[in-house]
Design a protein around this nucleic acid. Structure first.
Lengths: 162, 162
DNA sequence: TAATAAATGTTATTCTATAACATAACAGAG
DNA sequence: CTCTGTTATGTTATAGAATAACATTTATTA
């Protein structure tokens, strides 16, 4: 069964702000934030949890749009290239970037229970990784840091009940 | 086209040692390292680079064994549970664990060009991540640290030629 | 407006992973 | 040793993620 979209905790304000920011950035860069790409970004931001490509496709189809997997993946590729979203490799899902503008790879805390994601940016972690790779003469292209676990809310929840 | 198995840099000695170690650990734990599971572990260790599940399946079939995807995935699940291999989420591949016995999640440097992987274990990185998650009341289940980049050999190679 | 480039539509396929159920191998109790 | 329950493996089918290849449309600019 396909993932459903949970809007419970991502206020539209966030989405609107993110879209406005994206608009500005793309304009500055001469990148074309088309209807489709904007809509995909909006779908991602409207969701409380990261979405898979096929879930996004379902929403597009609900919009009445035509679409096949490449439709979504191409839009996602664009948004990734612009640093407007991140891909979580461990779950094959996509989430809006909280700090677009400065390209970065991000560090993520992913809750196993509710699926929500926090994006950290701890420079010390970056520096340590950098030191480690420098020492080995390894050139970094894409660092991936994804911590799967349980968020405070879900911990408390499971403490109260079962 | 399916991945092919490159034996060029993983001396059989490593594999033999890893298998012996696995044997011992499983015996201590009362876990059953069956023919199939041992063979899958051996296939992984005999390869210079991490292997995908379907590549492993191909090798099993070359052995003359019967097999379907679940055959491989079940063996991999066992080896993962025993901490004898790691899964690299960013590439959907599996690699032998260099320090089995102490369950750990590992930090990996993955070369984009040659596909080889170095497993780090920098306690400082673990500690930083731990501090960050503790501060947020987030319970860690599975930290994933995978750095995609280019290894020294491939950097030198590309400096000499193209 | 014509020529070019960029974006999207469309069909098919590849790769990754698991569900569900059948059969076989094994370990311990009697 | 045999029965019995458990664990492991065989087997078929399907779900889920991603891309290849080519057609068509939309935008840009010369």
């Amino acid at each position: 069964m396909r993932q459903t979209v949970d809007l419970s905790c991502s206020p539209p304000a966030d989405a609107q702000q993110a879209l406005a920011r994206a608009e500005t950035l793309c304009q500055q860069r001469g990148a074309r934030l088309t209807d489709l790409r904007r809509r995909v970004l909006e779908i991602i931001w409207n969701s409380a949890t990261p979405l898979g490509a096929y879930t996004i496709l379902d929403v597009l189809r609900d919009d009445g749009r035509q679409g096949a997997p490449p439709t979504v993946y191409r839009a996602l590729d664009f948004l990734l290239a612009q640093g407007l979203i991140h891909r979580l490799a461990s779950l094959n899902v996509f989430t809006g970037c909280r700090r677009p503008g400065s390209y970065h790879s991000g560090q993520f805390l992913i809750c196993r229970d509710c699926g929500r994601v926090s994006e950290l940016s701890n420079p010390a972690i970056d520096e340590l990784l950098r030191a480690e790779t420098d020492a080995r003469g390894f050139e970094v292209l894409a660092p991936i840091v994804e911590i799967l676990g349980r968020c405070p809310d879900c911990l408390e929840e499971s403490a109260r009940h079962g």
